[in-house]
Each structure stands twice: as structure tokens, then as C-alpha cells.
């Protein structure tokens, strides 16, 4: 018999994190790895499947050590077949497991789009709530790592566009833990985006124990009065650098919002901030056309028009395939602190 698979809100006790302490300093990748481990310890329905996730521990080593602890029934090295990975995970979710599927690079997710967008995302609606698909799809994404066209993509917008799935992109180790916990315990499919450049370059304090970051709630990274920067993922860190420089140079007071959750989008936090500052720069490293930045800009234009003191400004990748390999080409394509700084200064001067 199929069990009723509704949201499991009772967070189970977790072992192994910060023995006795309140938090631990760790890298982004360590936060994901230890959270996977803790969730698998807490709930034996949680299984991981993907390419090379077993003894290799994933090509980035996000799943390192898990097969040794949980065995090959729960950490499954799959054949090289993305649609099959997601399709099989959907069946697992229907029959009582809590699959976490890894797509090795977001650039290879396209052949699984049918299973993600037509199947996982639509199962609940099409069955009038008779079935659901509680699963997490972990996806390394993003550029700036000399990954060229097929190891750099940020194509989150097409998932954000589709009803029935949730999309999160943590920017800190703490949020990686909190959002992954929430994603695993959610009743619907969640796309969990991991910026690959952040795996080892970003460190931070991670709360011990059962830490949950709500899906759909943005984080105000720093408060400010003159302009709001809205972004997510790796661009949170590039924006912080830009803000530091521009603030030092101009004395401007700049608010920074890390969306964390791209879907659902925390429009309340965005609008409250823009109503206060009157100006907004929206940053994404994805192609700008029909992007998350477009959506945020449109929302501000629609719902905070009367409070605006300048044009809502998007900083996003050009309409060029992400991303060329050779350093000068990659640099020309990639959004960074310098480009964000240019937009900030221009808007502050408006």
C-alpha cells in the first residue's frame, strides 16, 4: 500500500553536527554533505541517486562518505541517463521513499526536463491531489569556474516558470543546511541549486542540530536606506564586494537581499525594502531575458511604482550562451562585482 506522503513537519533529532556546540564553521560543501548525512540518519526513507554519487562521492564530492555509512541500496550510482534518474526518483517518491536525485551539472538537466516539468511538477495537480512527488533534485550550477558552455549554466528561470515545483539557491553554508532540510521535508518537488564555485570558497557558521530555513523567505543580508540590491546564489557574494566598494567610495547606505528561494518568491521582503529605499538593482548571473531578475523587476514595477525614485535596473548576463571558455571571453560574459558596481553608481546618481 502506498503510504500517505504529506509534509513531515516533525523535525527529527539530528546527531553529528557540532557535538555539544551551537554552531560549526564549515564550507558550503561540508554543510550540504553533513546535512545529507543527518537527514539520512534521521529517516531511512531518504535515498540518494545520481551519477558517481557512490564510492566516488559525486564529482564534486558532495556525497562523500555516504555510501560507506548507508550502503548501496540508499546511495545509488545510476546509469548515465538523466531522464531515467528523475523518472525513477518520481516512482520512488510515489511508493514511499524520499529520493534526493543529483544531476551532475545543471547543463545536463535538459534531457530530464520532461520528467521534471511535465511529471514531477504536475503530478499533484493532474491527479487532483491523489498523488504527490516529495523529492529533491540537487543541481550544481553557475559559472566563473572556466566550465565553458556546458559546465557553467544557470537555467533556473525555466523551473521558476513552471507551477508545481519549488526552487531554492542558498548562498551560505547555514542556508544550505536549513534549506536542504526544508526541501527534504517538503511535500512537493524542490530544485536545490548549489553554486559550484561556492563549494569550497564560501565558509560560514552553521547552526547545530535541526535547523530549518523556510522555503519562500528571503534573507536581508545587510540593511540600507538608499538603494536595494536583490540577488541570489554566488551573486550575493559578488554584490557584497560591490556594495563594500561603492559604499566606501560614495558613503551610500545599501540594502542587500538574498532571495534564497526563487520560487516561491518573497515579494513582501523585496517590496518592503524598495518602498524604503526607492531604488533597486536586481542581479543574476543567468541570461537576463525572462530571468528571475526580470520577474523581480516586474514585481517592483507593478507593486512599488509610486515609491520608485529611479529605474529598476537589472544586471544580468547578455543574450549569449553561457559561457565561453577563454578567460577574456568568460570575463566579458560573467557578472561580477565590477559590473554590479557600475550599475549601483549609476542608479545612485539618478
Amino acid at each position: 500500500m502506498v503510504e500517505t506522503l504529506e509534509r513531515t513537519t516533525d523535525a527529527k533529532p539530528m546527531n553529528g553536527v557540532a557535538d555539544g556546540g551551537d554552531s560549526t564553521n564549515m564550507t558550503f560543501i561540508e554543510a550540504i554533505n553533513t546535512t545529507l548525512r543527518d537527514e539520512m540518519r534521521a529517516d531511512e526513507r531518504v535515498v540518494i541517486l545520481g551519477e558517481d554519487v557512490g564510492p566516488r562521492g559525486g564529482v564534486f564530492r558532495v556525497t562523500a562518505g555516504l555510501i560507506e555509512e548507508f550502503g548501496e541500496d540508499r546511495v545509488i550510482d545510476t546509469p548515465l541517463a538523466e531522464s531515467g534518474i528523475i523518472g525513477t526518483a518520481i516512482g520512488m517518491a510515489i511508493n514511499g521513499l524520499r529520493p534526493i536525485a543529483e544531476i551532475q551539472f545543471m547543463d545536463f538537466i535538459h534531457s530530464a526536463l520532461d520528467q521534471i516539468l511535465n511529471e514531477a511538477a504536475r503530478l499533484r495537480y493532474r491527479s487532483n491531489n491523489d498523488f504527490s512527488c516529495p523529492m529533491v533534485i540537487r543541481v550544481p550550477f553557475g559559472g566563473g569556474v572556466h566550465g565553458a558552455l556546458y559546465h557553467s549554466q544557470s537555467i533556473e528561470a525555466m523551473f521558476v516558470h513552471t507551477p508545481g515545483i519549488k526552487v531554492v539557491a542558498p548562498a551560505t553554508p547555514a542556508d544550505a543546511r536549513g534549506l536542504l532540510h526544508s526541501a527534504i521535508h517538503d511535500g512537493d518537488p524542490v530544485l536545490f541549486l548549489e553554486h559550484k564555485k561556492m563549494y569550497r570558497s564560501i565558509k560560514g557558521e552553521v547552526p547545530a542540530g535541526d535547523y530549518e530555513a523556510p522555503l519562500g523567505k528571503a534573507r536581508i543580508v545587510q540593511e540600507g536606506a538608499d538603494v536595494t540590491v536583490v540577488t541570489y546564489g554566488m551573486m550575493v557574494h559578488e554584490s557584497q564586494r560591490a556594495i563594500g566598494e561603492v559604499a566606501k567610495e560614495t558613503g551610500a547606505s545599501i540594502e542587500l537581499i538574498d532571495l534564497r528561494s526563487l520560487k516561491p518568491l518573497d515579494t513582501e521582503t523585496i517590496l518592503n525594502s524598495v518602498k524604503k529605499t526607492g531604488k533597486a538593482v536586481v542581479v543574476t548571473e543567468a541570461n537576463g531575458l525572462c530571468s528571475v531578475a526580470s520577474e523581480v523587476a516586474a514585481t517592483i514595477g507593478e507593486q512599488a511604482f509610486a515609491w520608485l525614485d529611479g529605474p529598476v535596473t537589472r544586471v544580468a548576463a547578455p543574450d549569449v550562451p553561457a559561457m565561453p571558455f577563454s578567460p577574456p571571453l568568460e570575463h566579458a560574459f560573467m557578472i561580477d562585482a565590477e559590473k554590479i558596481g557600475v550599475a549601483l553608481r549609476k542608479l545612485l546618481d539618478f
Binding site: V47, I90, G91, N95, G96, E119
Partner: peptide, 17 residues
């Protein structure tokens, strides 16, 4: 044919459970 991998998944779950 999108349902075909789902069957592999329900069968996998049946096996491990």
C-alpha cells in the same frame, strides 16, 4: 512513455522497502 521510468522507481521502492 514518461510513466515507464516511474515504474522502475515504484519497483525500486518496493524492493528496498
Amino acid at each position: 512513455s514518461t510513466q515507464v521510468p516511474h515504474a522502475t522507481g515504484t519497483a525500486y521502492a518496493a524492493k528496498v522497502r
